[in-house]
């Protein structure tokens, strides 16, 4: 080999030498190709079909759409309907309100639980954590089902709630039972129940790492426990709050099973609208349009989440390199 005179030696020989050393090139190409092709075929292609379908035209053929030919190549009418038909606007608002309410309540309920676990003794911590994760491993469907049993009009839980309500309010407001099933409140309640672990776990992971000597320093400098929480703990747990919030908000927005089983048929969420357009109205283009619109609803929080994740990762890497 000729003596190298320039640090920017010729590309070909450099590449050849690089190829020998495994974490750079070589057989990694094969490793990448297999899952890549799989995901393109079974995820990217269907995803693109949704986008294409949203500008197709509904026809009475099978499959029920037309694209080009006698139909317009790009049919934007579905997007117009999205903004004019109150069905879609209401479904959007319902989804958004439910998801925001569920996320906020999960945070309010989940934060003290996560903090409580993080501050518990070492041996308790792993037990409590396991107790939080355990329901997450049991079937999602069955967890929703368990609440159907509780919320029914003559269940012990409903009777208990009714008794409490009647004891608190004037006689004129007394109820025979609390109307829970098939309401929006039921959707929010069951969503909280299903996704609370997603809020608690990232919060716990964040809170558990906090340096408790900072709390002691703040107390030493004269802060009361509540003040310490506001000044020290809460600001440091923002990444955990963002992560937990996203993990609840995103699936709550597109939730399908919960409103289907405990929600009100007169106030559908977006997921149900997509399904109805597709399965009952056989309007593939409209279903796809609503799906695209739902994705846009998720893009903003997702970008926040990715940004926060990236920042945390960069920070960790910077710390690693310093060390």
């Amino acid at each position: 080999m000729a003596a190298i005179t320039d640090p920017l030696e010729d590309e070909a020989s450099r590449r050849r030498r690089l190829g020998r050393w495994f974490h750079r090139q070589g057989y990694m190409q094969g490793i990448i190709a297999i899952p890549y092709i799989w995901l393109v075929a079974w995820f990217l292609v269907p995803f693109l079909i949704i986008f294409a379908m949203s500008v197709a035209t509904r026809t009475p053929t099978a499959p029920p759409f037309g694209f080009g030919g006698e139909n317009p190549l790009l049919n934007w009418s579905h997007y117009e309907r999205l903004f004019t038909d109150s069905l879609y606007i209401r479904a959007y608002l319902t989804s958004l309100v439910n998801a925001v309410a569920a996320t906020a309540l999960c945070l309010v309920i989940g934060y003290p639980i996560a903090l409580g676990i993080a501050r518990a003794s070492r041996s308790w911590r792993s037990i409590l954590l396991m107790l939080v994760i355990l329901p997450f491993w049991t079937s999602f469907l069955l967890r929703v089902y368990a609440w159907i049993g509780l919320m029914g009009t003559n269940s012990w839980f409903n009777e208990m709630l009714t008794a409490v309500w009647n004891g608190l309010v004037p006689q004129a407001w007394e109820l025979a039972y609390v109307p829970l099933m098939n309401t929006n409140a039921a959707v929010i309640l069951v969503t909280i129940y299903s996704y609370l672990p997603f809020m608690i776990l990232p919060l716990y992971a964040n809170l558990e790492r906090l340096d408790l000597t900072l709390d002691e320093a703040a107390m030493d400098l004269g802060s009361r426990p509540m003040r310490v929480f506001w000044d020290i703990t809460l600001p440091q747990s923002v990444p955990g709050i963002i992560a937990g919030g996203m993990l609840v908000f995103i699936p709550a927005c597109g939730e399908f099973i919960i409103p289907n089983l405990v929600g009100s048929a007169s106030r559908p969420m977006i997921g149900a609208v997509i399904n109805d357009e597709f399965a009952y109205a056989r309007d593939w283009p409209m279903a796809s349009t609503v799906a695209v619109a739902l994705l846009f609803l998720l893009v903003v929080p997702l970008m926040v989440y990715t940004w926060a994740e990236q920042r945390a990762e960069d920070k960790a890497r910077a710390r690693e390199q310093e060390g």
């Binding site: 995803f47 079909i49 949704i50 995103i250 597109g254 939730e255 796809s288 799906a291 739902l294």
Partner: peptide
């Protein structure tokens, strides 16, 4: 993060 309904229909 894809809502399951969309993945399913797609």
């Amino acid at each position: 993060v894809m809502p399951e309904v969309i993945t399913g229909i797609a």
